[in-house]
């Protein structure tokens, strides 16, 4: 059954349909949450909150085609909410590495993955959410602005500044990574 059919069944209280939906989305949600909150356990909490809220509020979703966007909006809200709550605690949050050491050969790439990881940590969580929505979950910027509840100009501005921070921190020497020839023209 396609996603639309599953959503409609889950809206009517079919838990098996919801199980299928959750199973198909949880890994992607977890990955996105880890990028935003920078912590394994916090990401797990955010995904749990997201999917429980999804199940609880699914009957109120009017446009089933918009399920993915709605779910990702829930995720971003859950992530930012958890980060805000955690900020209120009088203890320092230790940012743990997000994954096992990378063993792939990234020679020839412009972006240093380890540096990118550190650079993400230097961004405000709201900025990280915009970066993740746009570059990782691949939503167009107007949609991102609506999802995080800011005007389009604000979203553009935050994304531009976030990219500037990431680039300044995570870019490798461009001389070592020449731009390839594209479509018969020299770059």
């Amino acid at each position: 059954m396609d996603q639309r059919g599953l959503v409609e069944r889950a809206q009517r209280g079919d838990h098996d349909a919801f199980t299928a939906l959750a199973g198909a989305t949880i890994a992607r949600l977890d990955a996105a949450a880890r990028l935003i909150v920078r912590d394994h356990d916090l990401a797990r909490d955010a995904v749990q909150d997201t999917l429980v809220r999804c199940w609880r509020d699914l009957p109120t979703l009017r446009d089933v085609v918009a399920f993915d966007g709605w779910l990702h909006k829930l995720l971003v809200n859950a992530c930012l909410d958890l980060v805000r709550r955690r900020r209120r605690r009088p203890v320092e949050v230790e940012l743990t590495p997000l994954h096992d050491p990378v063993t792939a050969d990234f020679s020839g790439q412009v972006i240093d993955r380890d540096q990118l990881e550190r650079a993400l940590g230097s961004l405000d969580p709201d900025w990280r959410a915009i970066v993740v929505l746009h570059y990782f979950l691949e939503y167009p910027l107007p949609e991102v602005a609506r999802m995080v509840g800011v005007p389009l100009g604000t979203a553009k501005s935050r994304l531009h500044r976030a990219i500037a921070v990431l680039r300044s921190t995570a870019s490798m020497d461009v001389e070592a990574a020449p731009e390839p020839v594209v479509a018969g023209r020299f770059a």
Binding site: A27, A31, R44, V110, I111, R113, E117, L120, F136, I163
Partner: peptide
């Protein structure tokens, strides 16, 4: 252009 792939690398495979 490279950022989406780099973010995927950093995020790794999400847990389920």
């Amino acid at each position: 252009r490279e950022l989406p792939a780099a973010l995927s690398d950093v995020a790794g495979t999400g847990r389920s």
